[in-house]
Design a protein around this nucleic acid. Structure first.
Length: 568
RNA sequence: UGGGGCGUCGUCAAGCGGUAAGACACGGGUCUUUGGAACCCGCAUUCGGAGGUUCGAAUCCUCCCGCCCCAGCCA
């Protein structure tokens, strides 16, 4: 475990656990579980659950199991179980030997079902799916009892065994719990607990042709593993009576407590599996790991650190009310972490050539640059400087507005770690009028960036020596959606219509300092004055560097300019 | 009168009868060789609404209003 734990803020689940420990419930133990269905990729919403479950286990000296809820072979695949394990591990959590599969319990679950039948608490029903739906009644009207509800135990036993033997086709019969067709809670109206599926399972192969349903499987799996607190999301609140019913009927030795909390919603994105699939399959993104996706793999590729995700999940809190967390908090969490850990480097995204006329031609010198002002132990590096350099196009204005502290005709600025330069001439393309080069002079007395005469300059620019520069491709990622709540657009507009057309801008001829030549996939940097970037793990290679922008630095100037424009 | 939940600052969220934490966002300032970071200040006389109990209520009671979830042989 590599994550520190300052005491997390209080939340109702933690409070329940503290009380339970105090009262000696469950022998004072805390055993939780994270139970994903391996039918898709994990996203930031799952991270909330992972951090909650593993975090609680860690805090109270218990343990957290990783259990795959794999009871529906038509939807689940091995590929997902591998991806999920990778994501949980990347987040920094270890389940150790406690890796389980609901499918490991199929034999025991079958035995439990037999037991239920013997108690007269379950029966085989021959109604079709459509009929079962009709018999279930509606939200306001009670259901009707199935004509098969009162079969004898012997007949039920025989039929259920034959279901297992494969004597019946898919959908022919199901095993149902005998509870209450008039219950206000539809989950209690004789829920199906086993269905016939002649489908091979990614782990049990063709051993089974009947598979247990979630409600029956989950509570018993929890019980088998000795889970103390079974934490799930709000939509399962209605299932709790059923969760408890099975455990009560079967007189198991361990009866975990199910506790529900509100799932995470994040502004400017979507988190439902169904919608994420549409983004992938519709080609709106490059895949599940597209850096704009809220999936763990996407976020990872985007350059977010595991620590920042954990921190985010702890800060958003855990409660029962529906809420939408501002994505600005997530962005704040990455900046906060990356600020302390990322080496600084100079990179020019949109280069503008600057010729320093009074600097000797052919001369090169090495200037010392600090790697991370937040971390002295990161040391320093040498950066080459020469007569021709690149600066950011945005750092020059021929006609500067008020408070523009960067370069302009006649203005002096500091080149970070280098010299003060003053702009004397602007060279433009004769035809287009586009600025193609600046002619400047430098003050040799200001080497390193300090003025011996105490002269102040407000602006400090990053730069890259032209002959030493390394070219790179940079991908500027932005929020995937242009509205805070794409899920609930006006008039039920499809969420895809809110996709931010500028969520990705690719820049091909960026100039980065030479030390970056050796950057490895996944390496994270702060491009000074611009933002945090990481080397793309899929498309970058030594001959063609590709950087992903994780998140831009806070840009006060952009804000000033914006409000200025609005105000005038 | 189907059943189950939830309503505290723009957004999250503590609070559990003793007189509204914190974070993000936002606004202002200090500092600065990143207009970054850091630091300082401001930001709910009020807790969905109305009654009631109490010396005292966001916290207890009553009624009302609003929002979310449930009719898969999905999880």
């Amino acid at each position: 475990m590599n994550c520190k734990l300052n005491t997390p803020p209080p939340n109702f689940i933690r409070n329940i656990i503290i009380e339970d420990i105090k009262s000696g419930k469950h022998g004072g133990k805390v055993i939780t579980r994270f139970p994903p269905e391996p039918n898709g990729y994990l996203h930031i919403g799952h991270a909330k659950s992972i951090v909650l479950n593993f975090g609680l286990a860690l805090e109270f000296n218990g343990r957290c199991h990783l259990r795959f809820d794999d009871t529906n072979p038509t939807k689940e695949e091995e590929e997902y179980v591998l991806a999920i394990q990778e994501d949980v591990a990347w987040l920094g959590y270890y389940w150790g030997k406690h890796l389980y599969y609901a499918s490991d319990y199929f034999d025991r679950l079958y035995d439990y079902a037999i037991e239920l039948i013997k108690m007269g608490k379950a029966y085989v029903c021959d109604l079709s799916a459509e009929q079962i739906r009709q018999y279930r009644g509606t939200l306001k009207e009670p259901g009707k009892e199935s004509p098969y509800r009162n079969r004898s135990v012997e007949e039920n036993l025989d039929l259920f065994r034959r279901m297992r033997q494969g004597e019946f086709p898919d959908g022919a019969r199901v095993l149902r719990a005998k509870i209450d067709m008039a219950s206000g809670n539809l989950n209690m109206r004789d829920p199906v607990i086993y269905r016939i599926m002649h489908t091979s399972h990614h782990r049990t192969g063709n051993k089974w042709c009947i598979y247990p349903m979630y409600d029956f499987t989950h509570c018993l799996s929890d019980s088998i593993e000795g889970i103390t607190h079974s934490i799930c999301t709000l939509e399962f609140e209605d299932h709790r009576p059923l969760y408890d019913w099975f455990l009560d009927q079967l007189k198991v030795e361990c009866h975990p407590q199910q506790i529900e909390f509100a799932r995470l919603n994040l502004s400017y994105t979507v988190l439902s599996k169904r919608k994420l699939i549409q983004l992938v399959e519709g080609g709106f993104v490059s895949g599940w790991d597209d850096p704009r996706m809220p999936t763990i793999s996407g976020i990872r590729r985007r350059g977010y650190s595991p620590a920042s995700i954990r921190n985010f999940c702890e800060r958003i809190g855990v409660a029962k009310r529906d809420s939408v967390v501002d994505i600005a908090l997530l962005e704040h969490c990455v900046r906060e972490d990356l600020n302390k850990t990322s080496p600084r480097v100079m990179a020019v995204l949109k280069p503008l050539k600057v010729v320093i006329e009074n600097y000797p031609e052919g001369k090169t010198e090495e200037l010392e640059a600090v790697n991370n002002p937040e971390d002295p132990s990161a040391g320093t590096r040498m950066v080459p400087f020469s007569r021709e350099i690149y600066i950011e196009q945005d750092d020059f204005r021929e006609d500067p507005p008020k408070k523009f502290f960067r370069l302009a005709p006649g203005k002096e600025v500091r080149l970070r770690y280098a010299y003060f330069i003053t702009c004397h001439r602007v060279i433009k393309d004769e035809k287009t009028g586009e600025i193609i080069e600046l002619r400047c002079t430098y003050d040799p007395e200001t080497r390193g960036g300090a003025a011996p005469d105490g002269r102040k300059v407000r602006g400090t620019l990053h730069w890259v020596s032209a002959i030493h520069a390394v070219k790179a491709e940079v991908r500027l990622y932005d929020r995937l959606f242009s509205v805070p709540d794409p899920d609930h657009g006006k008039e039920g507009a499809d969420f895809k219509t809110f996709i931010n057309p500028r969520s990705l801008e690719v820049i091909h001829d960026c100039m980065v300092e030479p030390g970056l030549r050796d950057a490895r996939p996944g390496d994270r940097y702060q491009f000074e004055r611009i933002g945090y970037f990481c080397v793309d793990t899929v498309d970058s290679d030594p001959g063609h560097l590709v950087f992903n922008r994780t998140v831009p630095l806070r840009d006060t100037w952009a804000k000033i300019e914006k409000t200025h424009r609005k105000g005038k």
